[in-house]
Structure formats: structure tokens, C-alpha cells
Amino acid sequence: MQITVQGRGSAAVVLEALHVRVVNRAAPAADRGSVYVLDDGCGAGITPRFFSVDLDAHQSLVRSMPGDDAGTKIPAIDFPYRVSLQEPEVLMVSALNESCTCDWYLNLDWSSQGRTGTVRIDDNGRPFRSTSTKGLPGYRYDRVYHQPGRWVPIPAANLSSTGG
């Protein structure tokens, strides 16, 4: 998921930490569907920060990861970050899980001008839901070999390389 963080005024806001809170873990349902890979498209003019969270772990932690922005290698740079109205940050969070269906949300801790707080990042008031993609059929949208484009199957062996 992509999270864009920006201050409301000219004062700097320091992003202190990002935490994951898993509120429910269950075995993946047998009828959970298919995997659709949505990695086609263009990025913005802001260099993102990359993070990963393993939802299968007993104590899930958000970890800074190296990334790739259109061929440019991005080093892993952990918190804190500074944002303002003119200087936003883009946080790219990859949630991975192979053995569970998990309900979860993120908490972003911040400080500015002597004040502190936490912003909950969720799905319009509800936790996000992620499930294992292990054993599911996968598809990607192909605009190169199929004009104007269509969903084509991904061989099961290649699903793990798509982040699924």
C-alpha cells in the first residue's frame, strides 16, 4: 500500500515510528478467490520509503527495506522522517502473509512543536484484511502482448515473485 504523509502547515512534523497492530488471525478460507497483480503504472515525483511487515509473525513489526523506484535503487532508511506542507513523504508498505487471513491496521507516531500524536491508518474505519495467496490462481494485466490489454494467467511458480 502507498501512504502519502504531508504536514498541514509550514511547521515541520517528525514521523517517529510506524507500528502494525494485528487484531485478528485466522486460517485462510478455502474459497478466498484469485490473485490479481496490479503493478503496472507510473510513479510520482517523490522518492518513496519502503517497508515490509510479516503478518504471520507472532509479533509483527514494520521494517524499513531497500527499494527500487523505476530502476533507481533506494536504500533502507528507518524513522524518523521530517514532513511539512511543502515536503511530503511516500511510505510504501508491503504486508506479507502465507499462513493466515489477518485483520490489521497501522499506527503512525508523530511529533511537532512540542506536541505528539498517533494517526491510525486503516480501511475507512475498519482494519485492512490480507490473506495468504498460497495455492491461488494468479493473473496479471498484459498490455504488451495483448492490445488493448487483458488479464492473463501467471504460472503458480511465478506468483511468489509478484509479492503474492
Rank of each mutant, 00 (worst) to 15 (best):
M1V: 11
Q2C: 04
Q2H: 05
T4P: 01
V5L: 15
V5Y: 05
Q6V: 15
S10L: 08
A11H: 10
A11R: 12
A12V: 06
V13T: 15
E16C: 09
A17F: 00
L18Q: 09
H19I: 06
H19W: 09
R21I: 09
R21V: 15
V22D: 01
R25F: 02
R25Y: 02
A27I: 02
A29F: 10
A30S: 10
D31N: 14
D31R: 07
R32N: 13
R32D: 12
R32L: 13
S34V: 12
V37T: 04
V37W: 06
V37S: 05
L38H: 14
D40N: 15
C42V: 11
G43A: 00
G43D: 12
A44L: 14
G45C: 01
G45K: 00
I46A: 05
P48K: 06
P48N: 06
S52L: 13
S52H: 13
D54L: 03
D54S: 10
L55Y: 00
A57H: 14
A57F: 11
S60M: 10
L61A: 13
V62Q: 14
G67R: 04
G67Q: 12
G67D: 03
D69R: 04
D69T: 05
D69M: 02
G71H: 08
T72L: 04
I74P: 00
A76H: 11
A76G: 15
D78V: 03
D78M: 04
R82M: 13
L85G: 03
Q86T: 07
Q86V: 02
E87N: 11
V90M: 02
V90F: 00
L91W: 09
L91P: 12
V93M: 05
S94H: 04
S94D: 05
S99I: 10
T101D: 05
T101A: 00
C102Q: 11
D103V: 00
W104F: 15
Y105P: 01
L106V: 03
N107T: 14
L108G: 11
L108W: 08
S111G: 09
S112G: 13
S112K: 05
G114T: 06
R115T: 05
G117T: 06
G117L: 15
T118M: 13
R120H: 12
R120L: 06
D122E: 10
D123Y: 02
N124Q: 14
N124A: 15
G125A: 03
P127V: 08
F128S: 07
F128Q: 05
T131Y: 00
T133K: 01
G135M: 14
G135C: 01
G135T: 08
G135F: 13
L136I: 01
P137W: 03
G138N: 05
Y139Q: 07
Y139T: 01
Y139G: 07
V144S: 09
H146R: 11
Q147F: 14
P148T: 11
G149R: 03
R150V: 08
R150Y: 02
W151E: 12
V152I: 14
V152G: 07
P153Y: 13
P153A: 06
I154A: 04
N158F: 09
N158G: 00
L159Y: 09
S161M: 15
S161T: 14
S161H: 11
T162K: 10
G163Y: 04
G163N: 03
G163Q: 03
G164L: 01
